[in-house]
């Protein structure tokens, strides 16, 4: 089955990305995690994301576009990246999720990816 790991990071973690003292540690942790998943051959796709500072949120209300700077919700943790992995079951997905650096400081939400839809009329 395919699962998406949604990697939620705290503001402090986002800050570590560019902090001259912390940056090597920060990226080293992620590289080790991603390297382990790659070595196990479970990655289907995945990306890191720029922080919520660069988020823009759009809603269309009554046909009118409302654009707002910032993320959709102001929460303590924000999405910092995602991976879609192919593993046999949720338990395996949770094992990988627990190894993500942000599992310690933030959280990882794990969700099954919807299976491909059958073509209409079949």
């Amino acid at each position: 089955m395919q699962y998406m790991l949604m990697l939620n990071e705290t503001e402090a973690e986002f800050a570590r990305r560019t902090d001259p003292v912390e940056t090597a540690d920060y990226w080293g942790g992620w590289n080790a995690f991603i390297g382990a998943m790659a070595a196990a051959g479970v990655i289907v796709k995945g990306d890191g994301l720029q922080g919520p500072m660069l988020a823009t949120t759009v809603r269309v209300v009554d046909g009118k576009r409302h654009v707002q700077d910032g993320p959709f919700a102001d929460t303590k943790e924000q999405l910092g990246g995602y991976f879609v992995i192919e593993v046999p079951d949720l338990d395996s997905a949770l094992d990988w999720a627990a190894r993500a650096p942000c599992a310690v400081t933030g959280s990882v939400e794990v969700r099954p990816v919807l299976p491909p839809m059958a073509p209409p009329g079949v």
Binding site: M1, P88, D89, D91, S92, P112
Partner: peptide
């Protein structure tokens, strides 16, 4: 069913 829990002794 939907989350795909593992049917096995841990």
């Amino acid at each position: 069913r939907e989350t795909g829990l593992r049917f096995a002794v841990p």
